[in-house]
Design a protein around this nucleic acid. Sequence first.
DNA 1: TTATAATTGAGAACCATTATTATTTAGTTG
DNA 2: CAACTAAATAATAATGGTTCTCAATTATAA
Lengths: 167, 167
Amino acid sequence: MELAKTPEIKEPVYRWDEKAIKQIVRDMGLKVTQQRLTILECILRGRDHITAQELYEAVQAKDPNLGFATVYRFLKQLTEQEYVSEVRMGGLPARYEWARKKSHHDHLTCKQCGSICEFENQQIEDLQEAIAKSFGYILTSHVLELYGICPECQKEDGILPGTKNFS
Amino acid sequence: MELAKTPEIKEPVYRWDEKAIKQIVRDMGLKVTQQRLTILECILRGRDHITAQELYEAVQAKDPNLGFATVYRFLKQLTEQEYVSEVRMGGLPARYEWARKKSHHDHLTCKQCGSICEFENQQIEDLQEAIAKSFGYILTSHVLELYGICPECQKEDGILPGTKNFS
DNA sequence: TTATAATTGAGAACCATTATTATTTAGTTG
DNA sequence: CAACTAAATAATAATGGTTCTCAATTATAA
């Protein structure tokens, strides 16, 4: 099967300065508190696919008094307003990523090492839309998570000839 | 977008008699216990997309001494050996269905009432395979869950003209 | 039949997440 | 700027699905 070429994603350079971050909170219709700014900073400047706990730890480094309930609460609001998207894999803790800096994408996760590849595929998106429509549904969201073994782990497993092996 | 026609699924008639059920447990490399037979019976004869708790209740009706730990334990083993497949939606309890009586399919869930439609689409399957391959992954499984508002709930919401309304 | 390793039931433990509540604070109004 | 009020917070308890522990029981192999 031939994959349709997806155009190169141009990653715009965002400046997440204090002002911009404050504006996000205001746009959400919430009060601008230091806690929310701290949390947002960590989300925007930290790495993607972070768990609530990881975020809490990152936030703790900046403000040891900031409680984890605040992190969860704000994270939920961000999710509801679709500023961040929530990815749940199996029964594992949810992972979050800032949803507005890149176009929509899905995930390909290695079952062994947990490494994540992102991809986007318009054909699949269109098919999903068509399927929902055929059932009379209004499609609001979807979860597409592919699981597999990454090239690195294939080597380690001896599925492919490789050098590394677990003892 | 045009949907490719998927051929009608011919549902073979399975006879889940005692003997067949016992054989499943043996095939799994497990001891044949009355508890496992009872649980399997409930899974095979009950309805699809059942939660562990619902299954526990069904099982309780047949054997009030059967503990929920046993249900969870066996359910996990069934999942690992892919006799049942586990569907997790958001943070909701996992739902299970017997995986070997029908061909693979995905789910379209109503966010409001939780009703589930099943669908299968070979084009999407193929695309997934192709994507994994393009990253060098061996695809082992996937989760595709579409979320939307079903026609019934659209009416209730007043999105579509309808008769029913919440007070 | 006996041995033994697997299985079970009961309940405790776990862990991510949510709710509660008394206290503090942001943003508004005078 | 000061006072007010609704929103937000920290701490902690509660929740709920799922997994673990362990002593007692049981299926299977010998």
